[in-house]
């Protein structure tokens, strides 16, 4: 059993980060995906995660969404532990299903392959969480969902099933669906990777709008370097399960300090 005495039951003080990874380790058998990760994301901050495939960047988001369990360390969201909960003797113990259910409400996620529910229309996809999970009335959920579909420019297709929508359209509905839950933290996992080049813009424009008009905390894994540079407050370069380098986009893209960052960025530029 891991000694949990070094981890506080709650983060206190001024300016506590919205998301905080403390010495988080994740491995599959002997393969270590993330090694003692320490990462703080402040409220309202937009952080992009870049890096070669297999560097563990998607795992960061999946752990935060509780789709993956962690092997050691603690993740805090809004000052409270997510992966753990206060137990006997004032120490943290692994979270119960109930605790996870309670804390997961702060987090929303968009996936590479959208994962819209195929048996529901765009509007029904957006209303599903608010009605079933948050317990909103259908009318309230409808108002909220239509407002968000308007925001992502999909109100005209609200009664279509996903099979009738293009990839870009599906992803915009997926963003509205996640936002309808009013999360404090939004996760974007390679949301443009499965899209045809000509429709990537319609999705990135929606995310741009969110960054400029809303005060959401966002974490984004992406291969779109230009996009990451444009909209991020901070960029983290992951390599081999660790943060190799991080900083404001102008610094990281403009004058990378580490050799691996330089190699990765020049390889990406050559590919374009």
């Amino acid at each position: 059993m891991e000694d949990m005495s070094g981890y506080p039951l709650e983060l206190t003080g001024e300016n506590i980060p919205m998301v905080s990874f403390k010495k988080v380790r994740k491995s599959y058998g002997s393969l270590t995906v993330l090694d003692d990760l320490d990462l703080d994301v402040n409220a309202g901050e937009m952080v992009s995660i870049i890096g070669p495939s297999g560097s563990g960047k998607t795992t960061v988001l999946r752990m935060l969404m509780t789709l993956e369990t962690i092997n050691s360390g603690v993740i805090y969201v809004d000052g409270k532990p997510l992966t753990h909960m206060p137990g006997k003797g004032g120490k943290l113990v692994p979270a119960s299903a109930r605790h996870l259910h309670e804390r997961r409400a702060d987090i929303g996620m968009c996936f590479q392959h959208f994962n819209l529910f195929p048996h529901m229309t765009a509007l029904e996809n957006c209303m599903e969480g608010p009605v079933q999970v948050l317990g909103l009335s259908k009318a309230e959920a409808r108002d909220r969902s239509e407002e968000l579909l308007e925001l992502v420019g999909m109100i005209g297709k609200k009664d279509q099933h996903p099979s009738r929508l293009s990839g870009g359209q599906q992803q915009r509905v997926a963003i509205a669906r996640a936002l309808a839950m009013r999360p404090k933290v939004m996760l974007f996992d390679e949301v443009t990777s499965a899209l045809d080049p000509e429709v990537i813009g319609e999705v990135t424009n929606v995310i741009r709008k969110l960054v400029s008009e809303h005060n959401l905390t966002m974490l984004m894994v992406t291969h779109q370097m230009g996009f990451a540079r444009d909209i991020s407050d901070r960029v983290c370069f992951f390599y081999d399960g660790k943060i190799e380098e991080q900083g404001p986009p102008a610094d990281l893209f403009g004058k990378p300090q580490r050799e691996r960052t330089q190699q990765f960025l020049s390889a990406v530029r050559e590919a374009i």
Partner: peptide, 8 residues
């Protein structure tokens, strides 16, 4: 996973 993300 999408259903988990909606906290179902």
């Amino acid at each position: 996973e999408a259903a988990t993300a909606l906290n179902m």
